[in-house]
Amino acid sequence: MPIHEKSLIRPENLVTHERLVLEGVDVSGDWSTFIEPRVVTDYNENLQDEIAALPGGEFLHRCWQCGSCTNACTVNAINPDFNPRYWIYLVRLGMEEELLRDKDIIWQCVSCHKCTYACPRDVNPEGVMKATAHWLELKGLTERKPSMLFDEVFSEQVFATGKIEDGRVLRQFFAKTGQSLFQDWLVALVRSFVRRLPLGLMMRLGFAGVFRPRTKGWARSSAAIRDHVAERRAEERRALGLPAGGPEA
């Protein structure tokens, strides 16, 4: 698969002249298109350190820009703008403005680990994607994305009971993102399932909906996990220079 690279030549950087004669030579037509010189001065010198302080970003500094991650990437194959190599480059150089152009797609990493498998430098690009998406949200540079909301609904159940119940995760996530449970594909799926009358499983699912599955004696584990997460969150906010508290606290 070829490496699809993002072009730095954007429409707003092109300068075209209807008619252009240089030193007596007519260079009209395609020759009259030039690229605006680009001078970057607004580096964010803390960018790499901040993302490296978040879980998954630890090995960012190892990257030598071979592009194996982007070449292997599942999401890149369906959206060429999804470019882990390029984002790691921007983070290392501190080019925050450029990174922010893609702030609404970085969260779409599907964690298939193809990049991590391919990476010759053990950068853990999948982790860098998560750390970058997390950084954008902690800094308030994007709204909270569906995947973060899903992770929270899911993790909250694990922290509370030690186990998850699929139906509850689905219902809570749909409620949190304001989606109807009656999506036509979901209705079709459930209809076809119910038609075959898997009574035992239907009772099992209904039962789990009422009496939530839980790990016995989980209270102490739950408390230990919550303390740990709160401590980590506070450390992260300090590393990013953010005041204590914030939307997640």
């Binding site: 973060m148 899903f150 992770d151 899911f154 993790s155 694990v158 740990h228």
Partner: peptide
Amino acid sequence: AMEVKNIDPK
């Protein structure tokens, strides 16, 4: 699962 890893890998 993957979800708790995204919240806190440890």
